[in-house]
Design a protein around this nucleic acid. Structure first.
Lengths: 143, 143
DNA sequence: ATGATTGCAAATGATTTGCATCATA
DNA sequence: TATGATGCAAATCATTTGCAATCAT
């Protein structure tokens, strides 16, 4: 319920800075991506919108996502054996851990992963993305 | 033109070892993946088959690819902003470099990339895949 | 008024599936 | 001749697109 005016200004300001006209739909979707969702699919965004922002069409979800990607406010993530695209509102350099049990994708700060490569100098690397797959140990209950 | 009997035995032996009935179509597709292609799409395999193995249907291409994946003879690779799945017949631990110019995906031996992570111990990592994106410098012509 | 966004429905395109046919042990 | 693979066509499903209606400036 933090859908108040100041939040809107913050979100719409970011959109404007990125050159995106801040419409109500775009603000709603971008806020959801930034504040509530964790690597959602387009479908999850649509489901959320059906509850919280009636009459936002699936086409607009996809259009908005692509506008945000174009504007460098969003990145898409494709995971092997998952049909749907995941959207990541964290655009700073980071990596991912995929929980094999839940399918959940977790952000891993880049400081926690050191990558050292010794490729032939013909390979000019601009970006590195590390995807770690595994299981998340249940946290033991205190007693 | 190395489509000779001994090759077939080698390929079909590997299929059998992995529990896959080595049919002519599967041998052809797997040989193509192992010896000729570099991370092809299903469509590329079909195009190749149309020239070299007439009457191999697209459904069989997909069925075979999925059988090979099930049998751990193949891995699928999904690259952001590319619609089609790439298939990787190199199943040993390695990484990838994606050439932004050509779209080509290049295998990088794991020895050339050192990954050190310091995640909380609740994260049990089973696999790490590193995708490096960048450009491949044109090799200067000798003179 | 104008230019951009939205929403609907139809289109697209990659992959999957149902089922009849075919091959092989 | 029985089990499973193949091939065709139809189905599926995520995503995209065309276009008319709508919104904001």
């Amino acid at each position: 319920m933090k859908q108040n005016g100041s939040d809107n200004k913050l979100i719409s300001g970011r959109l404007e800075t990125a050159g995106v006209i801040p419409t109500a739909q775009r603000i709603a979707i971008y806020r959801y991506l930034l504040c509530e969702a964790n690597h959602p699919t387009a479908e999850e965004i649509k489901t959320w919108a059906d509850k919280n922002f009636p009459k936002l069409s699936l086409a607009t979800v996809y259009n908005t996502l692509n506008v945000l990607i174009e504007a460098n406010l969003l990145k898409e993530v494709k995971v092997p054996h998952e049909a749907k695209i995941l959207y990541d509102s964290n655009i700073s350099y980071h990596h991912h851990f995929l929980d094999e049990d839940s399918g959940e994708l977790v952000d891993i700060p880049s400081e926690l992963v050191e990558v050292t490569s010794t490729l032939a100098k013909e390979f000019q690397v601009h970006d590195i993305q590390v995807l770690m797959r595994g299981k998340r140990q249940k946290t033991r209950t205190q007693h």
